[in-house]
Every structure is written in C-alpha cells, then in structure tokens.
C-alpha cells in the first residue's frame, strides 16, 4: 500500500487541493474503513489520497437544526448518528440504520459521507436517508453549493453524480410534517448473520401518522435489491391518506408488490435473486403489520 497524502485543514485548503489535482488521480479518505481495505488489495500507481479526517470546519462534522431541515455534515460518524437525540426522536430509521452498521469500532470512524459516496447498493445509511427523502448538498472547488435530490445522487453500482471537482458537504433531511405526528419508522436489515453483515436485502421506512391514524407522509427505500438503493415512490403514494390500522390482507400484499416493483436483484454470493424478492415481499408486508 503506497500512496501520497494531502491533509487540508479547512474547506478553503480542500478546494485548493482539489483544483491542483484536477488532472491527477486521487481519492477522498474520510473514515477509511472501506478505502484502506480496497487499497490494501490494490493501490493504483501515483495515487494521492485527499485526507478529510483533519478538516477543522465544524459545518462538515456537525448536526444542525434549521426551520425546515436537519442538516447533517458529511463527516458525521455512524456512532454520532446513533447517540444524537434529535436523530433518535425525529428519524428513528436513521438511528437504527447507523446502529446496525458493521461494528462498534467501525461506527466510531465510518462517516455518513463515506457511506453515501461509496454508493454501495446495500449502503445502510443511504437507504435510511432515502426513506427520509433527504437532499444532498454538494460543494465544488469554487466553494459553490448546489442541491441534488438523493435519488439523483446515485447513478449506478458504486457510482454517484459527483464530478471530479465536487464533494458531498452535507445532507438535508426535511423535518417531519407535524410536530404532533406519530412516527412508524425503522430499518429492517436481513443478512445471513446478525453482526458485521452486508445486507441480503434491507428496507427503510418512515411513516408519519396524524392523530386520527391517517398516514400523512411516507418514505420507503430498499437496499441490495437493485444497482442503487431505490425509493419506492408508488408504494409511498399508496399509503398516504390511508389509516395505518385499517389495511386488509389484500392491501398489504398490494403494497408489498408495489415495493417489489422497484427491485431488480441479482444472484450473488449472499443470496439468489429469487430469495431476495421473497424476503423483500415479506418484510414489506411486515411494515404494515
């Protein structure tokens, strides 16, 4: 494992560094839990790692509340997501996804930005953030920020819409519609063992329910079922306006089939495509039970 390193101390330095590497090969390093494993297997020649771990900018590594959003800096670690009380109260799905990611030791260093930009089809934090209908705040090397919906951020297996001179700065999660809304929010991860597992399939759900039991907003996302994590739009639409406790067996199946219509899984070392679909159908139904 041989590479060069640049450790910018703030965003201005980071932008400068990115500019100077425009025509050279570089990778970003944040928590390093994926990157070092990859580089241990194979390090391309003349690689430079732009080390984000020493950035001092608070905005990059904090959780901030605004009137409309909760903004989470890209350098927030999974363990921070587990222990933050706002995340726990407002977005249980994200807390659960973070708590079920890899192991304690990995969660201490693995970052939200790393999970997002690795863009694995089974990325746990991606799946939760997508169910929460987050948007991505992207900065370029001129410090210009633009927003992209999380669904447009992922364009293929391990591919994001980020250009070479851009990096993920933060994600914005819209606040729940009503303060008084009850949440039915969680992350279901199916694997062949409980710990340290990459999912066979995963499902993130975040339903907001008013006092009368009516679903006022719904977010459903599925992982390890397609080249990217998918937002199950029609399944969400199906739920909105209905009462959470009134679903018939037929409706539950209709909902599960809608979720399933977003899945195009492959057979691989972890499971067959058939098994993934069966499991996905059943856990989708389970959300309404």
């Amino acid at each position: 494992m041989e590479f060069e390193i640049e450790s910018p101390k703030n965003i201005t330095e980071l932008c400068k560094t990115i500019k100077s590497y425009r025509s050279k090969s570089f990778r970003f390093g944040a928590g390093y839990t994926d990157l070092l494993m990859e580089l241990k297997k194979h390090t391309p020649r003349n690689l430079t790692v732009i080390n984000l771990a020493q950035l001092k900018d608070v905005s990059f590594s904090s959780i901030r509340s605004t009137t409309k959003n909760i903004q989470i800096g890209a350098m927030i670690t999974a363990s921070k997501l587990v222990t933050d009380t706002r995340i726990e109260q407002l977005f249980p799905v994200l807390q659960q996804a973070a708590h079920n990611l890899a192991s304690t030791q990995i969660r201490q260093v693995a970052t939200l930005g790393g999970n997002m930009c690795t863009a694995s089809p089974s990325g746990d934090l991606i799946c939760a953030a997508m169910a929460l209908q987050a948007s991505c705040e992207i900065m370029n090397d001129d410090k210009k920020i633009h927003n992209l919906s999380i669904q447009d951020f992922f364009i293929g297996v391990r591919k994001t819409a980020l250009k070479k001179n851009e990096f993920l700065f933060a994600i914005n999660i819209p606040r729940n519609k009503k303060r008084t809304a009850t949440l039915h929010s969680g992350f279901i991860k199916i694997g062949t063992r409980k710990s340290m597992e990459c999912s066979v399939v995963s499902l993130a759900f975040h339903l907001q329910i008013d006092k009368t039991g009516k679903i006022i907003d719904a977010g459903i996302a599925i992982g390890a079922s397609a080249p990217t994590v998918k937002f199950a739009q029609s399944a969400c639409q199906f739920l909105i306006g209905k009462k959470i406790n009134s679903f018939s067996e037929k409706e539950k199946e209709e909902f599960a089939n809608k979720v399933l219509s977003y899945a195009s899984p492959i057979s691989d070392i972890r499971a067959t495509a058939w098994y993934r679909k069966e499991v996905l159908f059943n856990i989708s139904k389970g959300v309404l039970e």
Partner: peptide, 28 residues
C-alpha cells in the same frame, strides 16, 4: 487486517477503533 475481527482494537480519545483500518497520521 480488514476490520472484521477486532483483535487490533485500541482506544483513540477513549473510543474503540480498529487500528488496522486507521492511518497513523490521523492520530496526530
């Protein structure tokens, strides 16, 4: 050497971390 077994766990500022997946330069 890939963060799976935890044998290399050390504490960094009191938090447990796999030292096999941590760059020494970031302990500065």
């Amino acid at each position: 050497h890939e963060g799976e077994c935890g044998a290399c766990t050390v504490l960094i500022n009191g938090k447990s971390v796999n030292s096999c997946l941590y760059l020494a330069l970031n302990t500065n």
